[in-house]
Structure formats: C-alpha cells, structure tokens
Design a protein around this nucleic acid. Structure first.
Length: 561
DNA sequence: AAAAAAC
C-alpha cells in the first residue's frame, strides 16, 4: 500500500487547485465551500488519478464530498450506464449521500438515484430504466434489483463502500460480496470506514488494488467543536433530568437517543405532553414517515427527535445543537456516531450523556474509544430551572408590551384600578395567574364573516350547511384513545400536530371522553394528513382518527366497575 | 442488548 498523509499542507489549498470538473467546481462553490477538508484534499486527487482509496475517517469529516466530487468529475454524462455505485449501511445515509451527489452534480447532466428498501419500486424502476449514472443504495435493495435484472453493474467504473465497518457489523458482508461479483474487475474502488478491523482489512486486500491510504488525523475521534458532558442519573430520574436540561440549555434542535424502539415513542410522547415539539423515529416507522419527520426537524416544525440508532449515522441536520444520550450506547462506536449529529457544518454542538450507576463501566469504554475523559456535570437544580422560568416570564411581558392588542387591555386595567383602588402590581399578578391557568377572560371579536364572500362552493348562505356553533372551518374528528388510556390533551395535540404537519393554532376544542376523544381540526385536511394520522400511535394505541358523525349507536363498553 | 436491513 502506498501512503499519503491527509494534511500535506492544507494552508491555502482551495477546490480550484484540484483538477475537478469546472461544473462540479461551480456547484461546490454554490454550496459555499472554498477549501477542502483534510480528507478531501487527500482523497480527491487520488481518485482523480484513478487510484483505489482506503479512507479511515469518521463522519463529519467531509468524506461524502471526498468521493462524490472526483466521481462526478469523471462521470461520462453522455452515457446512460450506471457508472458509479455507492453502498451505505442505512437508508437514511444512502439518501443523504444521494442528496450530496445531487448538490455537487447540480451543474451536470447526471442522474443520481437512491435505491433502498421501504420505498416504492416504481420510481426506482423508472429511474433505472431512464438511466442513472450514479446509484446510491443499501445492500438489500441493490441485490433485489440485480436479481430482478433492473440494475446492470457490468459497466461500473466506480464503487464506494461507505461506512464499511458498519455494513459488516450489520451482517452485510455476504451481500456486499454478492454485489461485487456483478461488477467488472477494472472498476475503481473507494472504501471508507471509521475503524479498521481485520474483516475490513481482508476486504481491502481482496478488492482494492494498491490503494492510497487516507487517514484523518485528529487527537481524538470526536470533533473538538462538540462539548461533551455526562450526568449520573438513576433510571427513573431520566425524564426529569431531560426536562430540566431542555428548560435550561440554550439551543436550537435536539436529538435524543434511546435504546429501544418502544422508548422512542414513550419519550417523544412525554415530551409532547410537556409542550415540546417532539417526534419519534425508529426502524419500525414507515420509511416515508421517517423522511417526513427529518424534513420537519430541518424546517423547525419539530425541535426534538427521539431516535434509536437508526438515526445515529449519516443524519445531517445543521440545526441540531444538542445530542442527548438518554440511554448510554453499549457500543462505544455508536456514541461517536451519535454525537456526530451535532456540530455540523462548522457549528459548535453539545453532547450530553445520562449514565446510571450500574452503567459506569460503559462510560470507561467510551472514554477509551474517544481517547477523551468526559466531564461529569451537575444537573440543573430546581432553582436553576425556576430562574429560567422567571426569565422567560419577564421576557414574555417585554414581548407582550409591543403587541397590538395592548391598548385595549391598558384601558381595561386603568378602569379596574380606578374602580377598585388596588395596586397595579396586584392587578398584574392576578392577570398573570389567570393567564397561567389558561383562562380566556375576554371574548374577542370574531373575524369578519367571510362565508358570503367565499366563492369556493358557489353556494350561498341558504345552502344546506350543518349548523356549527364554533368555527366553521373546523370539523370534529373522533379518535380512539380516551381517558382510559390516560392521555393528556397535550399529548393528543402534540401527536396530531407532529404527525399531521399541523400547527397548534389549527386546533379547536378537544374533549377527552372515556373510550374516545373528540378533537376539532380543519375540515379540509391537506393531502394525506388523514391517512398519516390514522397510523399515528399514542402510548401504543392507534389513534384511528375519523370524522365524527355524531353519537354512534354503539356506545362502547360500559365502564368497568 | 438492541437496532438495522429486501419483498
């Protein structure tokens, strides 16, 4: 093996200094990148020269661009053949890599196709038929297409094995060999792996020819822009600990890692009941829903993702400022990947870890792998939390002072003061108390009647229209969970808002009944919302949202007594 | 110990 160091002298090296295709260079500049990261500086020239590459690199080092840029630079856009195949261990990673190829190849006439399980064959077959020069996929579905005859790798020029150690650990060794058997001998191979166990060395020796070895040197395996702390927390105290941190930490979005699929739902629900915009993600959640959840995390519809290790790798959402290891990972490698979800794109990040007393030995394992001593921290005290709450209370007053309705209320308060001779502070305190209790003490003028001007149905006010006392744009939906399941209204609003992409202001009244609940939602739900909501669970119960058709003959079972 | 990945 020849060897080259990842940091020759990266001082002023720019992408323009590398011999990459002008169209790719333009796309890279459009994305806002100027100078290559160490792994890019080493990998791009090697791959452009035609060498095989072994990259020992963590995620977050820019390794996707390191192979995408040279491959795109050399791809033959005149040919429709599949010339490049990237294999990745998880669907999310495959999708992210495909998106990266799309970004860097935006100025080229190149078709990039992600191929993975859980998503429809139709677009994949169509894409393959049309001709995708770059295919990015997970091993299972790639083999599926090979066996169907819909994917032809006989003209493959470039093969990338991304996160090779992970693919092996997940039992894909045979699958990878099966795929490799369908590729020509002359292809160029790049293998990236966070670690170099013997099994990876064996694959390297077998399939790579005189590879250039690229190692990203760093003192520790974890990025320096991520602050890491841990807390000793007993198992039953974890939820309380998380809540305290959520109330005191300054940040944008958060990902909370738990150990089991079931726990993702439980923790997400508890967070929603506490008023946080949280969603669960795990391998049992349909792929399309997973993807929508990630989009919601990106666009700020939700702030907290509660995940199993399905989201530990590849997930690239810049606004994630915090990673919480709610359950400590048993595999220290997983810790490294999990915390790599924060501190993206040069931002700083915070990684927090809950350790129960009996899990201390796992902490030691993590410290060995990261070659870093983790700092123990104290959880925020009740006083700390309350201090934040007081600050929030004060800020909310400052905010409200600027709001348009303030004049009306000022006049009301002045009137009250005149009539009752009570100090202003007492009045303000009483109002604050009311507002905390959520009491609506003033009726507001309803918005001007729009019904008559609305041409949507062509009908006039005399048309048959169900009399509705409340907002006419709302309809009542019945959901299967009720008091028996001990669901808080907040949990219902949260689940429906998150799963259905609705805003809290879209909701009308919620009535929790014994064996079902009634919730008012927009009468016309967009697109597939109703369908999506029918698959939503609260505390393991399908909510089974249905438009309510009034009292039903079957009144459910009589209350158990 | 669990999760991930092909129908």
């Amino acid at each position: 093996m020849t060897s080259s160091n990842a940091e020759p002298d990266p001082a002023d090296l720019t992408f323009a200094d590398l011999q990459i295709h002008p169209a790719v260079l333009k796309a890279v500049a459009d994305v806002g990148y100027e100078s290559p990261s160490p792994i890019q500086a080493a990998t791009i020239p090697a791959m452009l020269e035609g060498s095989d590459v072994v990259g020992l690199a963590q995620t977050g080092t820019g390794k996707t661009a390191a192979f995408a840029i040279p491959i795109l630079s050399k791809i033959d856009t005149e040919s429709r053949n599949t010339q490049a195949l990237v294999l990745a261990p998880t669907r999310e990673l495959a999708l992210q890599v495909a998106e990266a190829f799309g970004r860097y190849g935006a100025q080229l006439r190149v078709n990039v196709l992600p191929i993975y399980g859980g998503s429809s064959y139709v677009p994949q077959l169509a894409g393959l038929k049309r001709g995708a020069q770059v295919v990015v996929g997970t091993p299972g579905r790639v083999i599926d297409h090979l066996e169907k005859g819909s994917l032809d790798l006989s003209h493959l020029d470039y093969l990338v094995l991304d996160e090779a150690d992970e693919m092996l650990q997940m039992g894909f060794a045979e699958d990878v060999e099966r795929i490799l058997a369908d590729t020509p001998e002359y292809k160029q191979v790049a293998l990236f792996s966070a670690t170099m166990p013997p099994a990876i060395k064996k694959i390297t020796a077998k399939y790579l020819h005189d590879p250039v070895e690229v190692t990203v040197k760093s003192k520790t395996q974890t990025a320096e822009n991520i602050t890491q702390r841990y807390f000793l927390v007993s198992y039953p105290r974890k939820m309380d600990a998380l809540t305290r941190l959520l109330e005191t930490e300054q940040g944008d979005a958060m990902i909370v890692f738990v150990r089991t699929k079931q726990a993702t739902e439980e923790v997400a629900e508890k967070l929603r009941a506490r008023g946080f915009a949280a969603s669960a993600i795990n391998g049992d959640i349909p792929q399309a829903v997973r993807e929508r959840t990630i989009t919601q995390l990106k666009d700020g519809t939700i702030d907290i993702l509660v995940a199993t290790d399905v989201a530990a790798r590849g997930l690239d959402v810049e606004r994630i400022s915090h990673v919480v290891n709610f359950d400590i990972p048993h595999d220290p490698e997983s810790y490294v990947h999990r915390i790599g979800r924060t501190g993206r794109a040069g931002r700083s990040g915070t990684a927090l870890l809950f350790v129960t007393p009996r899990e201390r030995h796992l902490l030691g394992a993590i410290e060995r792998v990261t070659r870093q001593k983790l700092v123990e921290s104290e959880l925020p005290s009740v006083d700390d939390v309350n201090e934040k709450r007081v600050a929030k209370f004060r800020d909310s007053i400052t905010d409200a002072l600027d709001k348009p309705g303030i004049d009306l209320f000022r006049a009301l308060v002045e009137g009250y003061e005149r009539d009752h001779d009570v100090p202003m502070a007492d009045i303000a305190a009483a109002l604050a108390l009311q507002s905390r209790n959520g009491e609506e003490f003033l009726m507001t003028e309803p918005p001007p009647e729009k019904r008559r001007e609305r041409p949507d149905r062509g009908d006039r006010s005399d048309a048959p229209r169900k009399p509705r006392e409340r907002r006419s744009d709302l309809a009542t939906y019945r959901i299967a969970v009720g008091k028996r399941h001990k669901v808080a209204p907040g949990a219902i609003v949260g689940a429906i808002a998150n799963e259905g992409g609705l805003h809290r202001s879209d909701f009308g009244h919620i009535t929790i009944k014994m064996d079902h609940s009634l919730v008012e939602l927009p009468a016309k739900l967009p697109g597939n919302t109703l369908k999506a909501l029918q698959n939503t669970k609260i505390q393991g119960q399908l909510i089974q949202l249905q438009p309510d058709r009034g009292p039903k003959p079957h009144r459910g079972k009589p209350p158990t007594k």
